[in-house]
């Protein structure tokens, strides 16, 4: 139990550091930025404490906001994702997901991919809506969501393969 806590805390810090130092400086075509820091919420243990996840994702988002001067945009997006996570699990892995031993950081199966895809889309869509804050930017929001989703998923999968623990 304690080791999961330690793994999660180090994941929190490492993902934030990688996001701020490396991925925040990536700008494809001037406006597409991969945001793999939300992998923390995706990789959180399936049966872990929900309140702790909500608090942790709020802190995660708020730290990103401090670094990107955006108020509470990232915090709101992370919270939404953290709150909707059980429903996404139910959709991707079936109703009895709580009784299975789901490991997300493993070989990519269709279920895992669909889970990551839906999570990223929800997170990015909330993020860009709140960031633009105007209906007149609707197409802009959609394009940003779509393109950034592609790049975030690619970076997420690369990170998952890189940090895949205990190869047997």
């Amino acid at each position: 139990m304690n080791s999961t806590l330690l793994v999660n805390i180090s994941r929190f810090i490492l993902l934030l550091a990688v996001q701020i130092v490396i991925f925040n400086n990536m700008n494809f075509l001037g406006f597409i930025m991969p945001l793999p820091y939300m992998l923390f919420i995706v990789l959180y243990p399936v049966n872990g404490n929900r309140a702790a996840l909500l608090l942790a994702s709020f802190l995660l988002g708020l730290t990103m906001d401090v670094f990107s001067n955006s108020g509470g945009v990232h915090a709101a997006a992370c919270l939404t994702l953290a709150y909707l996570r059980p429903s996404i699990f139910k959709f991707s892995f079936g109703i009895s997901y709580e009784y299975q031993t789901i490991k997300l950081n493993d070989v990519l199966t269709p279920e895992r991919f669909s889970f990551i895809l839906i999570s990223v889309v929800i997170h990015h869509f909330t993020l860009f809506i709140l960031e633009a804050f105007q209906v007149s930017f609707f197409w802009d929001i959609l394009i940003r969501t779509l393109l950034s989703t592609v790049f975030t998923i690619i970076s997420c999968i690369i990170i998952i393969y890189l940090i895949k623990p205990n190869k047997r």
Binding site: F58, V66, A75
Partner: peptide, 27 residues
């Protein structure tokens, strides 16, 4: 808890969109 935290982040977002923003949430 979710609604409470969401309210806080919305407040911060709205504040960020007004001209003079909060001093803490800035780089």
């Amino acid at each position: 808890l979710f609604l409470l935290l969401l309210c806080i982040s919305f407040l911060l977002t709205i504040q960020a969109h007004s001209y003079h923003r909060s001093k803490i949430i800035s780089s």
